[in-house]
């Protein structure tokens, strides 16, 4: 499955990092990093991350 994050919207709330730590993380300068393509077994976690993002910055494509 593929993940997109709209960095214009993202405010680095880190909610996604807590919901799906295997796909999202905060780097040393407090910016969000994520894997654009992850295994389908993470679908539920990534969906939780998208639901939890306060600014709806996360899109699941495919």
């Amino acid at each position: 499955m593929k993940i997109e994050v709209d960095y214009d919207l993202c405010e680095n709330h880190a909610q996604c990092v807590f919901a799906a730590p295997d796909a999202f993380r905060m780097n040393a300068s407090d910016e969000l990093e994520f894997d654009a393509e992850v295994d389908d077994s993470l679908r539920e976690d990534v969906q939780s991350a998208a639901d939890a993002c306060p600014v709806q910055a996360i899109r699941i494509t495919g």
Binding site: N12, H13, A14, V17, F18, M26, D30
Partner: peptide, 10 residues
């Protein structure tokens, strides 16, 4: 503080 610093406390 910046978001990342909350992670260990959480």
């Amino acid at each position: 503080a910046p978001p990342r610093s909350f992670i260990p406390h959480r």
